[in-house]
Design a protein around this nucleic acid. Structure first.
Length: 571
DNA sequence: GCCGTTTTCGGCCCGACTGTTTTCAGTCG
């Protein structure tokens, strides 16, 4: 599947077109096609073969030709011609805050600057100020932008962004001028990583709020400071924007700043078809400018003829059509979760006892918890001879607390697909999660075969963290998710949505594909401490982004219902 | 370059902030 490569080629073309100063709508057309293709589930090679490229929204004659050529020879004539005028490496310069395509073109035309190092040198030596439109302040901003670029790690994981957002909201919410405050943007959509924070306030007097915001102790640099919008860089190199609107516009503003960009564009286009314009201040009739909605998000969607769409769905993945014809899913909520399916104790690499974990589950209001400690060959895995003792402890604790505790295991899948635990022990356990923890660099066919074989074992209930990724640290191993989904359907195995905030695995897109195939997903926190049980909110967020309803999730079942499912698997 | 329950030509999401301008271009989200 070459969709990602094709999308990257189209992005590159769009960047170079903008640098070359071509019609901006042309560049936008390429960018739009790139977005659509990277979200496509079908391999684009198939569409080329079937001569169906034109069925992709935003792909016309020219882009179709580019795609076909790219798949054949790895580049396009258009790209070659563009890069004769402006070398491809110029694209890196666009990553500097405050440097856009017009500036990049000028830097190259006048000074032949192609790299960030050269840009830095030119800025320091005073060459830049001689260029038109370049003052001292702009040069200073570019130098700071370069410094930030060098430090910046890109998007940060959701759970860290959440902590920052909660801290800032706490510092601002008690100001008397603040009527409402809401972290919006990708954070509100619970996207797995967050590029920057958008915080929104409803107020009639924004100045004191903006003042306090730009002077927060953790602010490293003020990027912008106006009456309706301020932007700051925090000392961890994380950008936070604060926007202020009148209370009458809070609904449309929260809709607008929650995004995603693709969702908003689709929404606006729909509104335009109905003679309405939408902006952050409200919904207006095009004919006479009359405002017809804006105070609440519900009113905004209603004015456009839609029911309110939960933020997690706002990615332009079909939610607008679903809202139009009343087929939005009834998304799972955290209250629907009735138990924990994946947890560890001191028996392997956890930090608490069986009893402490069970008590934490009771405190969460759960009906049950599964203890699923590791197997060998993980150094800390429970040895086969120790399992009888572990099982006995689980049964006794369960009786003592009058709380259902499932005896389980997270067993390692060996490179050949066999399991690192004797079958007669697995048979004694209530629940078996099988996961890959080693030999992750296998090729895609071997890895797929490996996991499929584990799924064929009737003792296995759930495949744990099916792609092995650690967000921002380790990419997923190569595996055919589609094949796992097919096998899950065939054999009645569940795939996990691992809710550990560093994993979130399956991710939202894969989980959506699994949900659409009708397989069961299990949200497990992979808790190693009692407080980790709270990670469930991240797993539920992924499930919501995957359009899951309660019946798609294993641990929304009652205890007896869960036991039935676990036993059914073994008949 | 793409697209069409107003259009096969003429639009394409749109507003805020900054800096260098003296009326606006560039960048960003």
């Amino acid at each position: 599947m070459k969709n990602a490569e094709v999308a990257a080629m189209l992005e590159e073309t769009a960047d170079l077109m903008e640098i070359a100063g071509e019609n901006p709508f042309k560049a936008r057309a390429y960018r739009k096609a790139a977005e659509t293709i990277s979200a496509l589930r079908e391999p684009i090679e198939e569409l080329v073969k079937k001569k169906q490229l034109h069925t992709i929204e935003g792909v016309g004659e020219s882009i179709a030709r580019d795609i076909a050529e790219f798949l054949q020879r790895g580049t396009t004539t258009r790209l070659e011609q563009l890069s004769k005028k402006y070398p491809t490496q110029l694209r890196t310069l666009l990553e500097i805050q405050g440097v856009g395509p017009r500036t990049v073109a000028m830097l190259y035309d006048k000074l032949k600057i192609t790299t960030i190092d050269q840009l830095e040198e030119a800025a320091k030596s005073g060459k830049l100020t001689k260029l038109p439109g370049m003052g001292e302040q702009k040069v200073k901003n570019i130098l700071e932008g370069i410094q930030l670029w060098r430090q910046h790690q890109g998007r940060i994981p959701l759970y860290i962004a959440l902590e920052i957002a909660e801290r800032i909201v706490n510092e601002l919410k008690d100001l008397e001028e603040v009527e409402q405050i809401l972290p919006a943007g990708s954070l509100r959509r619970w996207k797995e990583t967050v590029g920057d924070l958008d915080i929104l306030v409803a107020t009639r007097k924004s100045q004191p709020i903006m003042e306090k915001f730009v002077n927060l102790p953790e602010v490293q640099k003020v990027l912008a400071h106006g009456p309706t919008k301020s932007s700051v860089m925090m000392d961890n190199n994380f950008q936070v924007d604060l926007r202020a609107v009148e209370p009458e516009s809070f609904g449309s503003a929260s809709q607008y700043f929650t995004g995603s960009k693709a969702h908003n564009i689709a929404l606006r286009n729909l509104a335009l078809k109905r003679g309405l314009t939408v902006n952050e201040y409200g919904v207006f009739r095009e004919a006479n400018g009359e405002k017809i909605a804006g105070e609440t998000e519900e009113s905004v969607y209603e004015a456009i003829g839609l029911i309110w769409i939960p933020p997690e769905l706002r990615e332009d993945r079909g939610e607008i059509e679903a809202a139009m014809n009343g087929s939005l899913p009834k998304l799972i909520t955290i209250e629907d979760v009735r138990g924990e399916t994946h947890s560890h104790t001191k028996w392997s690499d956890g930090f608490a006892s069986v009893e402490e974990m069970a008590k934490a589950a009771m405190k969460m209001g759960y009906e049950y918890i599964a203890i699923t400690d590791h197997s060998p060959p993980m150094g800390w895995g429970v040895k086969p001879e120790d399992f009888p003792k572990l099982i006995r402890e689980i049964r006794m604790t369960s009786e003592k607390l009058s709380f259902p505790i499932l005896a389980g295991i997270e067993v390692d899948i060996a490179p050949d697909g066999s399991l690192y635990m004797d079958e007669d022990i697995l048979k004694q356990l209530d629940i078996v999660i099988a996961s890959v923890h080693s030999a992750m660099k296998m090729d895609i066919d071997s890895m797929t075969r490996r996991i499929l074989r584990a799924m064929e074992n009737p003792l296995v209930h759930i495949i744990g963290h099916p792609t092995g990724r650690i967000i921002n640290q380790r990419p997923p191993y190569e595996v055919r998710i589609d094949a796992l989904i097919d096998k899950a359907q065939e054999n009645g195995v569940a795939l996990e949505i691992n809710a550990s905030p560093e994993r979130l695995d399956l991710n939202d897109e894969n989980a959506k594909a699994a949900k659409e195939a009708g397989i069961i997903l299990s949200i497990g926190t992979d808790s190693h401490r009692p407080e980790h049980l709270a990670f469930i909110r991240f797993g539920v967020a992924i499930a919501r982004r995957a359009w899951c309803e309660p019946q798609n999730i294993l641990n929304t079942r009652s205890y007896s219902n869960l036991l039935d499912w676990l036993k059914h698997r073994r008949i």
